[in-house]
Simulated assay, not measured.
Amino acid sequence: MRKVEAEVNIYLTKHMTIELADGEDLDDKVWNMVIGWESRDDERYEQLLLGARLESVDTEEMNLKQKVRMAINRFDPYVLMPGHPDGAPLDEYDCLSDRISRKLTPAYTVEQIAELIGREFKRSFGEDFPLSETIHVAQWIYEYIHD
């Protein structure tokens, strides 16, 4: 038998409603839900995975517009669930993704991409999206562009 190192990235996308008590932190509650299972046989584990999507996407063959679209759909701040059977059409954020991809160049930093995303969401929805909310999706786009 031999030991082999492997790097595995698994993204689980699951939209759900969680009840929060006053003062309760959403991230803490979700984290505690996920790590609180004793085994995969736990019924709560099965409920979480029910209807969830595990994403494994090869981005090498995708153009910039497709990569931005995938990242923005994954971001989905309004929980529209584009492309999901119970959600909005797959093209729900396309006008926004198109504008971002047209303005984007490989020279953009993660922070510049995050600022661009925030400006375009404000333009489309009239709501401010601070850097703290767009930085993770900007990192995805940056990685898609540079991988």
Rank of each mutant, 00 (worst) to 15 (best):
residue 1 M to C: 06
residue 2 R to G: 05
residue 3 K to W: 14
residue 4 V to F: 12
residue 4 V to E: 03
residue 4 V to Q: 08
residue 9 N to V: 15
residue 10 I to N: 03
residue 14 K to T: 01
residue 14 K to D: 03
residue 15 H to E: 07
residue 15 H to Q: 04
residue 16 M to F: 09
residue 16 M to Y: 06
residue 16 M to K: 08
residue 18 I to G: 01
residue 19 E to Q: 12
residue 20 L to I: 05
residue 21 A to G: 10
residue 21 A to V: 06
residue 22 D to N: 08
residue 25 D to V: 02
residue 27 D to A: 10
residue 27 D to S: 07
residue 28 D to S: 10
residue 29 K to M: 07
residue 29 K to D: 04
residue 29 K to I: 02
residue 30 V to W: 08
residue 30 V to G: 08
residue 31 W to G: 07
residue 31 W to F: 15
residue 32 N to V: 00
residue 32 N to Q: 10
residue 32 N to G: 03
residue 33 M to K: 11
residue 33 M to R: 09
residue 38 E to P: 01
residue 39 S to C: 04
residue 42 D to V: 00
residue 42 D to L: 02
residue 42 D to M: 01
residue 47 Q to R: 12
residue 49 L to W: 13
residue 49 L to Y: 13
residue 51 G to K: 00
residue 52 A to V: 01
residue 53 R to L: 07
residue 54 L to S: 05
residue 57 V to C: 01
residue 59 T to Q: 00
residue 59 T to L: 14
residue 59 T to M: 15
residue 59 T to W: 02
residue 60 E to P: 00
residue 61 E to G: 15
residue 61 E to N: 11
residue 63 N to Q: 00
residue 63 N to T: 00
residue 64 L to Y: 02
residue 67 K to W: 03
residue 70 M to K: 13
residue 70 M to E: 10
residue 71 A to M: 07
residue 71 A to E: 06
residue 74 R to S: 14
residue 76 D to A: 07
residue 76 D to L: 09
residue 78 Y to D: 05
residue 79 V to L: 08
residue 81 M to Q: 12
residue 83 G to E: 04
residue 86 D to G: 05
residue 87 G to C: 02
residue 88 A to W: 00
residue 89 P to E: 12
residue 90 L to T: 08
residue 90 L to W: 09
residue 90 L to D: 11
residue 92 E to P: 02
residue 93 Y to S: 08
residue 93 Y to H: 07
residue 94 D to V: 00
residue 96 L to A: 11
residue 98 D to F: 08
residue 100 I to F: 11
residue 101 S to V: 05
residue 102 R to S: 04
residue 104 L to Y: 12
residue 105 T to G: 14
residue 106 P to R: 14
residue 108 Y to D: 14
residue 109 T to N: 13
residue 109 T to Y: 08
residue 110 V to F: 03
residue 111 E to W: 02
residue 114 A to C: 08
residue 114 A to F: 05
residue 115 E to M: 14
residue 115 E to F: 13
residue 117 I to F: 08
residue 118 G to L: 04
residue 119 R to Q: 12
residue 120 E to H: 09
residue 122 K to Y: 12
residue 122 K to A: 08
residue 124 S to M: 12
residue 125 F to D: 05
residue 126 G to V: 00
residue 129 F to I: 01
residue 130 P to K: 04
residue 130 P to S: 07
residue 132 S to F: 03
residue 133 E to W: 06
residue 134 T to I: 06
residue 134 T to M: 07
residue 135 I to A: 07
residue 138 A to R: 04
residue 139 Q to C: 03
residue 139 Q to P: 01
residue 140 W to I: 15
residue 140 W to R: 12
residue 140 W to P: 02
residue 141 I to P: 13
residue 141 I to M: 11
residue 142 Y to C: 00
residue 143 E to G: 05
residue 144 Y to E: 11
residue 144 Y to G: 14
residue 145 I to P: 06
residue 146 H to S: 04
residue 146 H to G: 03
residue 147 D to W: 12
